[in-house]
């Protein structure tokens, strides 16, 4: 059955039959590539068998509360699209197709989801981008970026003085646990070699803060400003900055830590 040419009614019928065909045997979850992410994050909806049980309930008209919506949205997204669940399903259910369609519905209706800004989105960019309307495709990306930017725009307002006496609790921010940025002497090598910065005529407007400016922010304790910059989500993780730093600042790893802490802050 082709998702593009088949009649929508037939597609829905097949979907309902597939939900009904699931015996909750757990073969999919035993072979799930993201099983360790479930172990770390504790969200059972990461496991395919639990997503199926949930979708069955949903199809039978069950209403969701906010917490459940968030959990299922995250669970459906934290999938590496390896297709192993589909390969291993003894009932022959095409689980991968289910995930693709349910994922788009949950993204459209749910709260901003930080995981959209991770390589979990690779398959969506490769295979889904061409099949859904442009605004439906980009909206989840834009809302996640906005939510993660926090107060960045206000903090960057040139009329407001930068507070230089920021108090941070020791160890409370993952970004400051590792302080290699303290060795930065602002030579700007990281920014000079960064292919993202190099891609634009006006990088400051596009990425908010350039890599050396982020290191400088961290040195001044301006963690919220650093973690709100678009740059951290536009980072290609090519590690050129880190490789070229004469002071062994772990620039790319610091950006990774900032991403982790920005996500933690919207989840709290």
């Amino acid at each position: 059955m082709d998702p593009v040419t088949s009649s929508p009614a037939n597609l829905v019928t097949r979907l309902i039959m597939e939900l009904d065909a699931c015996t909750h045997c757990g073969s999919c979850s035993l072979n799930c590539s993201a099983a360790m992410v479930f172990e770390a994050a504790g969200n059972e909806y990461i496991l395919p068998s639990e997503k199926m049980a949930f979708l069955k309930n949903l199809a039978s008209g069950k209403k969701l509360d906010d917490r459940q919506t968030r959990a299922i949205q995250e669970g459906v997204y934290l999938c590496t699209n390896c297709d192993r669940c589909t390969v291993r399903c003894p009932s022959g259910i095409r689980l991968k197709d289910l995930w693709y369609s349910v994922r788009e519905q949950l993204l459209a209706g749910g709260p901003p989801l930080a995981h959209v800004l991770t390589p979990y989105s690779f398959a969506r960019g490769l295979m889904i981008r061409e099949t859904v309307p442009v605004d439906e495709y980009t909206r989840p990306i834009e809302t996640a970026k906005q939510a993660l930017a926090g107060r960045f725009v206000d903090l960057m307002n040139p009329d407001i003085p930068i507070p230089l006496n920021v108090q941070t609790k020791e160890g409370s921010q993952p970004a400051i646990r590792d302080n290699t940025y303290a060795h930065c002497f602002s030579c700007q090598s990281c920014t000079t070699v960064c292919p993202v910065v190099g891609n634009y005529d006006n990088p400051e407007q596009v990425v908010g803060l350039m890599p050396h400016q982020i290191m400088c922010c961290l040195g001044l304790g301006l963690i919220e400003m650093a973690a709100g910059a678009q740059m951290i989500w536009d980072c290609l993780t090519c590690y050129k900055c880190q490789e070229n730093c004469p002071q062994q600042v772990e620039v790319c790893d610091v950006l990774y830590r900032l991403k982790n802490s920005a996500v933690e802050s919207i989840e709290r």
């Binding site: 360790m36 992410v37 770390a40 991403k259 982790n260």
Partner: peptide
């Protein structure tokens, strides 16, 4: 299972 690469942006421990 997954090498962990896609989880790095959001959850270092995962």
């Amino acid at each position: 299972n997954c090498c962990g690469y896609p989880a790095r942006n959001t959850d270092d421990r995962a």
